[in-house]
Nucleic acid binder design. Structure first.
Lengths: 133, 133
DNA sequence: CTATTATGGACTCATGAAGTCTTGAATAGA
DNA sequence: TCTATTCAAGACTTCATGAGTCCATAATAG
């Protein structure tokens, strides 16, 4: 079980957008160079972030991506959920009669992690952030 | 990102072993019937649990599996780690100069989850456990 | 009109999960 | 000692998903 690299890229891209000038949209080409990943691949993740309402896209020349919300309102969990989906980490595959006690425990544990990620905003790192490379 | 079904089976198998009579080893055939999974597949997971030191195997007639430790000393995390491995959920694939701040946050979150799973013992469910099916 | 930029679908490739099959080793009991 | 039972391990198959490419289409600034 691992987070996908796509999540890794998305988190870094968002960190860049949070630290970048908020008025000017950043084209995917620039982001892709910074992260060392292909444009076409990165654009998949950015599209997901757009659909999740975290960023906004501007087509055409001088276009690109910029934040849609206040940067203080964007949590790690928002980004992770946008890429990985919101399904639970654990789903019992046995057909018990009742609710699965084991599943309840693991989901409870997952919620501890989510709670931390929900409270942690990507902008908190912007101060310490010295550039991607 | 999801826990594997193997982890699901292993947790249920351990719950059964914890509630079963501790003196008599339980053969994989019996466990497999209870869980509704094939013997050969389940035995893979049980072998991992043996290697992790959670249970003990007894070959030959009247053999099977029994707990190796005190049942109060077996946590959810022990079982999950035995099956899934102990690698971190997140590994930054960019080559930064320094440590990755993003990775630090996600690993911190993971540790919240692990802390909960480490404190939760499988035997805590034994009381409420009404059988697998 | 053209260059730039995002969107979306089809596609390939590699990896890992899920599961089977078979062979071999250990041991209890006759 | 022989046999039935039980665990261990490796090779193998199948399928789903992650990772990534390529191309055609749509939107927009100049």
């Amino acid at each position: 079980m691992k987070y996908s690299q796509a999540t890794d890229y998305a988190l870094h891209a968002m960190l860049y957008l949070v630290t970048a000038a908020p008025d000017k949209p950043v084209p995917v080409q620039l982001l892709a160079e910074k992260l060392g990943v292909s444009q076409t691949y990165l654009s998949k993740m950015l599209t997901k972030l757009v659909k999740a309402g975290l960023i906004q896209s501007v087509s055409g020349a001088n276009g690109g991506y910029r934040l849609r919300r206040n940067k203080e309102d964007i949590s790690f969990l928002d980004i992770i959920h946008a890429i990985e989906g919101t399904a639970s980490l654990f789903e019992c595959s046995l057909n018990h009669g009742s609710e699965c006690l084991i599943q309840q425990v693991v989901i409870e544990a997952e919620q501890k992690m989510e709670q931390y990620l929900r409270n942690k905003k990507i902008s908190e790192l912007a101060g310490q952030f010295k550039g991607i490379g």
